[in-house]
Write a protein that binds this DNA or RNA. Structure first.
Lengths: 226, 226
DNA sequence: TTAAATAGTGTACTTTGTACAAATATATTC
DNA sequence: GAATATATTTGTACAAAGTACACTATTTAA
């Protein structure tokens, strides 16, 4: 069925989420070579022999987006012997949340890849390997996190309106939320700092701007205050 | 610092919990060889080239305890380059919950190990590698699962009293719970089947026996009804 | 029969979540 | 500058879930 190799190869793949053009999107790269040449895939690469897995995931992230200091959490390790058609490759998957503003996607002269692009997570193209499963699982995890911890702020600019915050929740949970209840809950949490500024009205009534108070995140679990 | 190898080695280690003698315990094995010769460790082994990671974890579990069909969940993948003193070994850790009755621990003529024993999780000996961290993290995970899903039944015999059930929660959470509230909550969940039997009074007033209704567990997340 | 041990039970209060509709502030346009 | 369109903002009543808390009942053993 597949070529036996002496050892496993170990990679890390990173599902990178952002909100862009009013949609929840993931970063995909188009593969230059077989297997799955020309297919879209989530960015990934081999873990180097002297680097931690976290460091490898961060390196992959940085190669493609040039961002650091963002929410990055280990998701799950996928190791079906048949997930790669020609070798035994175990991948330790991560997911990340970033703000898409001022991010310039890049290849870094990487001949492995012919394109890098944001794709709406609810309208994905056919994907290489088991990457569809990995994205679905990371979406599930992000939703779970959202229940306990306002990680959505990783997707928002420094200053944001309550409507923008709610919109990010709705995009991730893929359902409408009640405006009054959403505000009540968030204001009760006292993790929002009400600013003296308002939107300079791109349209209609200006909205109050908020920022997040400092939050200590434990990336291994994603709870408040570790 | 450590010998460079061409590739990573990939293992799986399994934290196996049980309740025995009124204590929450984990299964440890004593290592026969270096590194960490003579030190206690959680059972583990290399993932074979054609087996899934789940299958490898299950194999390790079966080698030591001869049980199957129990709750086994992937925990986290630990990959610090310094976690193993002489090689680069990435380990995909799992945890399992089993009933300790009628379990015969075994080596299977394994020269890697000189002893197999249950150890109270709150009084651990010095452990090999990063196994202390792995056990601590799995304890944290078991506690999280307990909030959503009655996985504690994996630790109990087929028929049990509410006091026994509560005791298992108290051992895992490491705190006392209120008897009335505990009972109210569980009976409201309607996942318990009240039996017509009582304990044949090993002591004092006999207690009603219960069993669990069939529950569909999704081991990747551990929620009710997948 | 009495004492000791464990099993079993209910109520008031607090907190959290949910359903739901009207008034307000600005920009645009006529 | 008046009217209109659009997005912002606000509160209350009800339901559900969690928490604190103390006494009675049944059995065994002395």
């Amino acid at each position: 069925m597949f070529k036996e190799t002496k050892t496993h190869e170990v990679t890390t793949d990173v599902v990178i989420f952002t909100i862009k053009d009013g949609k929840l999107k993931v970063l995909l790269v188009k593969r230059a070579h077989e297997p799955f040449k020309g297919k879209w895939a989530i960015p990934g690469g081999f873990i180097r022999i002297s680097e931690t897995i976290d460091a490898a995931a961060l390196r992959i992230l940085k190669e493609k987006t040039n961002v650091q200091n963002i929410y990055l959490e280990q998701l799950y390790t996928f190791g079906d012997p048949l997930r790669h058609p020609t070798a035994r490759v175990i991948t330790c998957a991560y997911f990340a949340l970033i703000r898409s503003d001022d991010i310039v996607l890049s290849f870094e002269d990487n001949s492995e890849i012919t394109e890098v692009e944001w794709h709406p997570v609810y309208e994905l193209p056919p994907l290489a390997f088991d990457h569809k499963e990995i994205i679905e699982y990371s979406l599930k995890r992000v939703r779970e996190r959202l229940e306990f911890c306002p990680i959505a702020f990783q997707l928002l600019p420094e200053k944001f309106t309550l409507t923008e915050l709610q919109k990010s929740y709705e995009l991730i949970l893929d359902k409408k939320l009640d405006k009054r209840n959403f505000r009540k809950k968030f204001l009760a949490l006292s993790i929002l700092k009400e600013l003296d500024e308002c939107t300079k009205s791109g349209s209609k009534r200006p909205a109050r701007l908020y920022s997040f108070n400092e939050i200590t995140l434990n990336s291994k679990r994603g709870h408040f205050f570790s």
